[in-house]
């Protein structure tokens, strides 16, 4: 330490510190090792998707391609086979869009209004219903899967888009309602009172006072719903029907329909493509994403 010599007999001024303490060294070492563990699959996904089959078979999983090419991406998107047909994962991509957009809109519309009612206009059994929803969100989905099969079959919408939208609305409702309810309850009660003194009705207060000041929570909610619905596999496979299979199901079918040896490069390209939408949302909206999962879990 260079500055040891300048320390006088009497302590004075800033206390000299070593460049790095051993505690800090441990902290950074652990963090970096863990970061590498978390980054490894992303790295391997990317480099594998840029390799050719022969490079994969002959080479090392950790070593990037000497001759990277996007051929596997092109194949994954346009012509990979799912077992039924060979139109690539783009079919699943568009299906996922068709599922995610209406599901997100419907579920957030229902949940935001329910949350507003619960927070600002409670009535006799409102908290009871909410408790049911909350407990319901922890019930394993399998318990309610077959009853919903019966309902959708009765309505003649089983294996169609409306069925999967309905299911996402149902299962998204508890956490979304919780999110909105806690947010609206955290707004000053006096604001609500002021609007009532101003003569605003139930809907006027919601649309003209609360919604404009709730952009952050709607953002959080959209992020949670879009990533959640996009990443769903179970509901898609059960309720959507083969022509509407979302991207996750298509991905699984592409990977599993090995025809003459696994094409790992195409599989990994399809995997990245499937993860791309939620990842993009995640990287763009980092803070909101964290806020969303924390708000859903730790309550407002």
């Amino acid at each position: 330490m260079a500055n040891t010599s300048t320390i006088s007999a009497e302590p004075s001024g800033a206390k000299p510190k070593p460049f790095i303490t051993w505690e800090r060294a441990v902290v950074y070492t652990v963090l970096i090792v863990c970061a590498l563990f978390f980054l490894l699959p992303l790295y391997i996904m990317i480099i594998t998707s840029l390799k050719s089959i022969s490079e994969i078979q002959g080479g090392n999983i950790f070593v990037p391609s000497s001759n990277p090419s996007l051929a596997a991406w092109e194949k994954a998107w346009n012509s990979a086979c799912t077992g039924l047909y060979c139109e690539g994962i783009k079919v699943g991509f568009w299906n996922s869009i068709k599922i995610t957009v209406p599901s997100t809109i419907v579920s957030i519309a229902v949940a935001s209004i329910s949350g507003y009612s619960l927070a600002n206009w409670p009535f006799k059994f409102s908290e009871g219903f909410f408790t049911i929803l909350l407990l319901g969100s922890f019930i394993p989905y399998v318990v309610m899967l077959y009853p919903i099969v019966i309902i959708t079959r009765y309505l003649g919408i089983f294996s169609t888009l409306p069925a999967v939208v309905l299911v996402h609305t149902i299962f998204g409702l508890p956490i979304q309602t919780l999110l909105f309810r806690n947010y609206f309850a955290s707004l000053p009660q006096e604001l609500f009172k002021a609007a009532r003194v101003d003569g605003a009705s139930y809907w006027q207060i919601f649309f003209r006072v609360f919604v404009p000041m709730s952009v952050p929570i709607f953002t959080v909610s959209v992020i949670l719903q879009v990533t959640g619905i996009w990443n769903d596999f179970l509901f898609g496979v059960i309720y959507a029907g083969p022509t509407n299979y979302p991207m996750t199901v298509q991905l699984n079918n592409i990977v599993n329909s090995a025809q003459g040896g696994k094409a790992y490069n195409v599989d990994m390209a399809a995997t990245i493509l499937t993860g791309l939408v939620p990842l993009t949302i995640y990287f763009i909206s980092g803070k909101y994403f964290v806020r969303g999962i924390a708000a859903g879990a730790v309550k407002g």
Binding site: L31, C34, A35, F38, L39, L40, P41, L42, I44, M45, T48, I56, Q57, I61, T227, W230, N231, D232, F233, T248, V249, L251, N252, V255, Y264, D267, M268, T271, T274, G275, P278, L279, I281, Y282, F283, G286, F289, V290, I293
Partner: peptide, 28 residues
């Protein structure tokens, strides 16, 4: 660090499963 630790959570289990199946595949 937070971004790195949390990004897998944004991914689908299907994506996670296929990546790890590939990494852990004894073949290649």
């Amino acid at each position: 660090f937070r971004t790195i630790f949390l990004y897998p959570f944004a991914l689908s289990f299907v994506v996670t499963g296929h990546v790890w199946a590939w990494i852990m595949s004894p073949e290649y």
